[in-house]
Design a protein around this nucleic acid. Structure first.
Length: 609
DNA sequence: ATTTTGTGTCATCTG
DNA sequence: ACCAGATGACACAAA
C-alpha cells in the first residue's frame, strides 16, 4: 500500500495537471464540437472532391467526345458543334432522366474548367442554334432552359458564379428573370427529397440552384452530390462512350486546371450541402456562446465600466462583495496589536498556512454561521456556567461585540495567511481588544480564521466576561517571566487566574498541536521520500542481479562448450573419441585432470559417502 | 448520509 | 515537583 503511494501519487498529480491544462486549452478555444464539425466537414469535402473529380473525368470524356465531334466537323461552321453537343446530350437526357442530371453536373464543372469568357462566347455563338434545336425538349422556359438544357457546358459558368455571388454576397436579387426563378424554386420545393436534403436552404442558395438549371436537373444534381454514388458517375462516364486514351492525356492537363474549379465547386457544393450548417449555423454555433457571454458579460462590463459612483451607489455584485470584504478585512487585519503577535507565534505553523491560505473564500460562509454559532457553543456555555453568575449577562451583551471583534480578529488571521505564504509561523492567538465601532462584513471569514476566531473569540469572550485586563495574545505568547510580571501587575481574582491559565495553556497547546502535526506531516513526507529512494535502490539491485545471473549463465555456457571441446579432443588407444555421456573430466586439487567413467564416478561418490 | 480533512482541545507523557 | 512542550485521542465543523 504505502510503497505504491508516492509514485502513484506523483504520477497522478502530473496526470491531473496535464488533464487540467488540456481542458483549459480546450476551454480557451472553440468547443470540441467545432473542431469535430470542421473535421467532419473536411472529410465530407474530401469525399465530395473525389466525387467531383470522377465527374470531371466523365466530363473530360464528354469534352473529348465533343472535341472529336468538333474536329470531325471542323470543315463545317464552328458554331455548329455546339448544337451538336446539345443534341447529343439531349437525346440521352430525355430517355434517362438521371443521366442528364449528371451531365449537367459535369457540364457545370466543365464550364468551370473553361474560362467564363469562353463560355460566354460559346453561349453567344450557340444560342440561336440551341433555340432551334432544343426548343422542343425545353419548352417550359424559353430563355433559361435552353442554355441549360441544350449545352451544359454553356450553363456551367453561370451556375458557379451565381452561386458564388450569392454565397459571398448577402442574398442578392437575381439578375435572371424573377419569374423563372420562382418557377424553378416552386418546382424545387415540390420535390420532397430535395427538401429533405437541402433542409430548406436560403434564397441565396436557392437562387444558386434554380437560376441556371432546370428544376429536374437540379434535383438530380443535388441527388448526385448527396448520394455520392460512384456507380452512377461511372455509368455516366461510360454513357457518353468517349475514348479513354485521349482522355488520359487531356486529364493530366485538366487536373492542373482542376484546383480552382474544385475550389469553386467546393464552395458552391459545400454551401449547398451544408445549407443547414451554413454560415448561419456556424454563427449559431459560435454566436450563441458569444451572444450569451455578451449578454452575460455586458452588464458586468457595464458595471465594471461604470464609474465609481455606480459601484458606490449600488450594492456591488456578489463576487465584488466578497473581494471588497476581503480587502477590507485585509485592511482591518493590520491592526497594530496583531502584528507584533504574528512574529512571536512563529512556531512553524506553515501547516496551518496552507489551509488558511486556501480558505479565504470559503471562510465567508463559516464566518456567518460560525459567528452566530460560536456564542452558543457548548464550551462557551460551559465556561459561562463556570464563570461567575454576573458574567453571563455580560456575555450575552458581548455577542454583538464579539461579532465585531471577530471581524477585527479576522484581520490577523488574514495576516496569518499571508505569513503562512511567507512560511513564517503564525501566532494563532491574537487577542484583540474589542474594536467597538468595527463592523465586520458577514462574508469575510476564512474557515480557519473562523475557527481560530471562534476559538479566540471564545477565549476572548471569556476574558472579556471576566474583565481580564490584558490581551489574550499576551497571555499566550509572552515568555513566562513577562507573563508572570503582567500577572503580578494586576490584581486578579481566582476565576480570572484560572481562566488566564487555561487560555495560556490552550493557546500554547494549540500551537504545539499545530507544530506537532506539521512535524508529523514532514515525517510522512520524509518517509515517503525514503521509501521512493529505497524502491529505486531495490530496483537497481534487482537489475544488477539479473545482469549477474545473465553473465553467470554465459560463463557456464562457455565452460560447458570448453568442456565439450576438450572432451572431443580426447581419444582412446584406438583413436575413438570418448563419449561425454560415458566419461567425465575431473580435476583434482593439485590441478591434474582425469578422465573418469561415469559409472566409476558414481561409485566413487558412493564410496565417498 | 457518509467520509475526509482540518483544527482545537484535553489528557497524558517526557525532558 | 513543576513546567513547557509533544503527542495521541477525541470532538466538531466544513467540504
Amino acid at each position: 500500500m504505502e510503497i505504491a503511494l508516492p509514485k502513484t501519487y506523483q504520477s497522478q498529480q502530473d496526470m491531473d495537471l496535464i488533464d487540467i491544462l488540456w481542458r483549459q486549452d480546450i476551454d480557451l478555444g472553440a468547443g470540441r464540437e467545432v473542431f469535430d464539425y470542421s473535421h467532419r466537414q473536411k472529410e465530407y469535402e474530401l469525399e465530395k472532391q473525389k466525387k467531383l473529380e470522377k465527374e470531371k473525368q466523365e466530363q473530360l470524356q464528354k469534352e473529348e467526345e465533343k472535341a472529336l465531334l468538333a474536329q470531325l466537323q471542323l470543315d463545317e461552321e464552328t458554331g455548329e458543334f455546339v448544337p451538336r453537343l446539345a443534341q447529343h446530350i439531349k437525346p440521352e437526357a430525355s430517355p434517362v432522366p438521371r443521366e442528364p442530371s449528371q451531365h449537367v453536373v459535369i457540364s457545370e464543372e466543365d464550364g468551370e474548367a473553361l474560362s467564363f469568357d469562353e463560355c460566354m462566347q460559346l453561349l453567344a455563338e450557340s444560342f440561336p442554334l440551341v433555340e432551334d434545336i432544343a426548343v422542343s425538349p425545353a419548352a417550359l422556359e424559353p430563355s433559361v432552359p435552353d442554355p441549360t438544357g441544350s449545352s451544359p457546358v454553356l450553363m456551367a459558368p453561370h451556375q458557379p458564379q451565381q452561386a458564388q455571388a450569392s454565397l459571398l454576397t448577402s442574398p442578392l436579387p437575381d439578375h435572371k428573370s424573377a419569374q423563372d426563378i420562382e418557377q424553378a424554386w416552386q418546382e424545387l420545393l415540390s420535390i420532397p427529397e430535395l427538401q429533405q436534403c437541402l433542409n430548406m436552404p436560403d434564397l441565396t442558395e436557392l437562387s444558386s440552384y434554380t437560376i441556371p438549371n432546370k428544376p429536374p436537373e437540379i434535383q438530380n444534381v443535388n441527388y448526385n452530390f448527396y448520394m455520392s454514388n460512384p456507380a452512377e458517375a461511372m455509368a455516366n462516364a461510360s454513357d457518353p462512350g468517349c475514348p479513354g486514351g485521349f482522355l488520359n492525356s487531356f486529364e493530366s492537363t485538366y487536373t492542373n486546371v482542376i484546383p480552382p474549379e474544385n475550389l469553386n465547386q467546393m464552395t458552391i457544393n459545400t454551401s449547398d450541402l451544408n445549407a443547414p450548417f451554413g454560415s448561419g449555423s456556424i454563427c449559431e454555433m459560435f454566436y450563441p456562446a458569444l451572444i450569451n457571454t455578451n449578454i452575460n458579460n455586458i452588464p458586468p462590463t457595464n458595471n465594471v465600466n461604470t464609474p465609481l459612483a455606480d459601484l458606490l451607489s449600488e450594492p456591488p455584485p456578489k463576487p465584488m462583495d466578497i473581494s471588497d470584504f476581503t480587502v477590507t478585512e485585509g485592511f482591518e487585519s493590520n491592526p497594530p496589536p496583531n502584528i507584533p503577535e504574528l512574529p512571536d507565534s512563529d512556531s512553524g505553523l506553515s501547516m496551518d498556512a496552507s489551509p488558511v491560505a486556501s480558505s479565504p473564500e470559503s471562510s465567508m460562509k463559516s464566518s456567518i454561521y460560525g459567528d452566530a454559532a460560536f456564542g452558543n457553543s457548548d464550551s462557551d456555555m460551559e465556561d459561562m456556567d463556570s464563570s461567575p453568575g454576573s458574567v453571563q449577562p455580560e456575555f450575552a451583551e458581548m455577542f454583538p461585540l464579539s461579532y465585531h471583534g471577530d471581524g477585527y480578529r479576522a484581520s490577523p488571521s488574514t495576516a496569518q495567511s499571508n505569513q503562512t505564504f511567507s512560511l513564517e509561523p503564525k501566532t494563532p492567538k491574537k487577542e484583540l481588544p474589542t474594536s467597538p465601532g468595527h463592523i465586520k462584513p458577514p462574508f469575510t471569514k476564512d474557515k480557519s480564521r473562523s475557527r481560530l476566531e471562534s476559538r479566540l473569540s471564545r477565549d476572548e469572550q471569556r476574558a472579556k466576561a471576566l474583565r481580564i485586563p490584558f490581551p489574550i495574545d499576551n497571555i499566550i505568547n509572552l515568555p513566562v517571566d513577562d507573563f508572570n510580571e503582567i500577572m503580578s501587575k494586576h490584581q486578579l481574582n481566582e476565576a480570572q487566574l484560572a481562566l488566564i491559565r487555561d487560555i495560556r495553556k490552550r493557546g500554547k497547546n494549540k500551537i504545539a498541536a499545530q507544530n506537532c502535526r506539521k512535524r508529523k506531516m514532514e515525517n510522512i513526507v520524509g518517509l515517503e521520500y525514503d521509501l521512493d529512494s529505497l524502491k529505486d535502490e531495490k530496483e537497481k539491485q534487482l537489475k544488477e542481479k539479473e545482469e549477474n545471473d545473465r553473465s553467470l549463465l554465459q560463463l557456464k555456457q562457455q565452460l560447458n562448450d570448453l568442456y565439450l571441446e576438450v572432451f572431443s579432443m580426447l581419444h582412446d588407444e584406438d583413436g575413438k573419441p570418448y563419449s561425454p555421456s560415458e566419461y567425465s573430466l575431473q580435476q583434482t586439487s593439485d590441478g591434474s585432470i582425469f578422465l573418469i567413467p561415469k559409472s566409476k564416478k558414481t561409485q566413487l561418490k558412493n564410496k565417498l559417502k
